[in-house]
Design a protein around this nucleic acid. Sequence first.
DNA 1: TTTTTTGTTCAAAAAAAATTGAACTTTCAA
DNA 2: TTGAAAGTTCAATTTTTTTTGAACAAAAAA
Lengths: 166, 166
Amino acid sequence: MHPSDQPDTEKLTIDQRLISFFRDGAKIIGLPASVGEIFGLLFASPKPLTMADLVERLDISKGSASQGLKMLRTLGAVRDVEYDNDRKGYFEADIELKKLVGGFIREQVRPHMDSGTRKLGELEQDLDTVSDPELRAFYENRIKIIQRWSSKAKLVLPLLQKFLGE
Amino acid sequence: MHPSDQPDTEKLTIDQRLISFFRDGAKIIGLPASVGEIFGLLFASPKPLTMADLVERLDISKGSASQGLKMLRTLGAVRDVEYDNDRKGYFEADIELKKLVGGFIREQVRPHMDSGTRKLGELEQDLDTVSDPELRAFYENRIKIIQRWSSKAKLVLPLLQKFLGE
DNA sequence: TTTTTTGTTCAAAAAAAATTGAACTTTCAA
DNA sequence: TTGAAAGTTCAATTTTTTTTGAACAAAAAA
């Protein structure tokens, strides 16, 4: 019997736990685990970190670190900061929920919604090609249903942003 | 030059388009493409379909059809119906947004949120193990930030459901 | 019964997505 | 300039997820 009766999970440090927390969070919203880990480490760090820090502390490749940072910057979840008047780039996690959610909606949700809206339009065009009147009426109704969903979805996003902003 | 000057996408039938629409939608919310296709075909069908219909019309395996239907039933997106007083099982798409979103939240969102909440609790426990007071104060603040996010998230879901329920 | 039809399960195969790392580019200091 | 440090890119690899299909189980018809 081992001296410690604590389960495995008890041995993790706070920063390891934060990294794991954000790794899981990233997977949930459909982002690569490495992206979540990078954000987690930055979030858990009292001072800005370099790409080399990420590579070392997360044991990931330079490629992953570079690509992950790129994605996080695009999402507005990480920002470049001056530090140590050093030529290296330093990074910091953004902690404003409004900004994080806003970036996610802008980069991940909107493009999908726009493409969905476009496809829906194409669908409507093609109604003319349906000759059987009964089937056509059925499809018309189905398309109306999706359109109702779509207009709700379009209202929800700004509402959500408003709710999360402060 | 080919006689038709229509691009490829113009040749699709309405049901093919609906299948493609829901395949994309499924991928976006992190469900397998086949699950989206099954829902799409059911949504596009004026009458209930059997598993054999799905296998034939979507050209998927019996295994995929069975698993996909299972998931869709769990989500409350598809229901069993009596039809043709036939021994076979017949299925129909559910078209109530409230129910679709509710099922998704119940099956996919809540479990993740609960696990996140648990992890957050563990994190808080471990604050005691941080001896450096400055670092500890930093972590305390970080955890507070996540807790604020978390309580917002917990308010958002019922709000969302209320908004979507007619 | 026995046979046929219907549906499920799950190990293996295929497909998709993430990650690596080496080659390349950029930037700055010497 | 040249060299070294920092960062990016992307084809190849690894990992993860999805899909398949054959074996199995359940249920009803013959």
